[in-house]
Amino acid sequence: MATLLSARGRRVPGPVRHSDPDGEVRLALPPSLPAALGCDAVGVPARYGFRLLSRLPGNGCVFADTDWWWWIVPAGSDADLRWPLPSCYAADAYVPDRRPRLIHQPDTTSPYTPPIPLYLMICQLTGVAPAWSVPGVGTPL
């Protein structure tokens, strides 16, 4: 988990599969699906993978290895959201190098899964109440 959180400031141009010394890999998007909004990834343990894939109204690129499934979301999809455990948010789509492979490619020209439906579905599957902060609401003046 610590290696996922340490990836926050990294930027690698283009959709390349890039390994680093920390044992992480950047998920490589197909060249036909440009990530104009940047890309991060949201991972869940594999036991939730098929349920999420079949229930979400729209899926972008989805990667999987034996232990985790990863959905590509626009960069910054963690702003004002607390993704519930056991999910994991991976900035710049850097994930542990367990040889993830692309298992789902969207029929659209966008590589992204809409983050809010994904977040709400993960909350439902994990039994966690959705929680996010609204800037300016409840903050002292």
Rank of each mutant, 00 (worst) to 15 (best):
D97Q: 04
A90V: 06
R55W: 13
R99D: 13
G23I: 06
W69R: 02
D40S: 15
Y89F: 14
L118H: 05
P100Y: 02
L37T: 11
I72V: 14
W83C: 03
R82Y: 13
T113I: 08
P106Y: 05
P114N: 06
P117W: 04
P13C: 07
P31Q: 11
Y112T: 04
F63Y: 15
C39V: 06
P86W: 09
R99C: 11
L5E: 13
V42S: 05
A36V: 14
T108K: 05
L81F: 14
Q105Y: 10
G49V: 03
D67C: 09
G9K: 02
V42R: 01
Y119M: 00
E24C: 07
S6N: 11
P115D: 09
D107T: 15
W68L: 02
V12W: 12
W70S: 00
I116D: 12
W69N: 00
G76E: 04
A35G: 11
G38K: 03
L52V: 11
D67F: 12
G43Q: 00
A79C: 14
P84E: 01
G43Y: 03
D22P: 03
C88W: 09
G60V: 05
W71S: 00
D97S: 09
G38F: 06
L81Y: 13
P96V: 05
G14H: 12
I72Y: 00
L118I: 08
A93T: 04
P57A: 10
P45F: 12
P31I: 06
P100S: 04
H104W: 06
L37Q: 14
A7N: 06
A28M: 11
M1R: 07
L5V: 15
G58I: 04
R10V: 14
L29N: 03
P21C: 08
D78Y: 08
C39F: 13
P21W: 14
S32V: 13
R26F: 08
W83D: 00
R55T: 15
L29C: 06
P86K: 01
R8Y: 15
P15R: 00
A41P: 10
P30T: 09
A35E: 05
D92E: 14
I116V: 15
S19W: 07
A64K: 03
Q105T: 15
A64R: 04
W69M: 03
P106S: 05
R47T: 15
D80P: 06
P100F: 03
L4W: 10
G58Y: 10
G76N: 04
A2M: 10
R8T: 13
R17A: 15
D40Y: 03
P45V: 12
D22Q: 08
T3G: 09
D97Y: 05
S54K: 07
R55P: 07
F63V: 06
P45Y: 08
H104V: 09
R99G: 13
F63R: 00
Q105K: 12
H18A: 11
W83L: 02
D22T: 07
P13S: 12
L85I: 10
H104G: 01
P74H: 08
P30L: 08
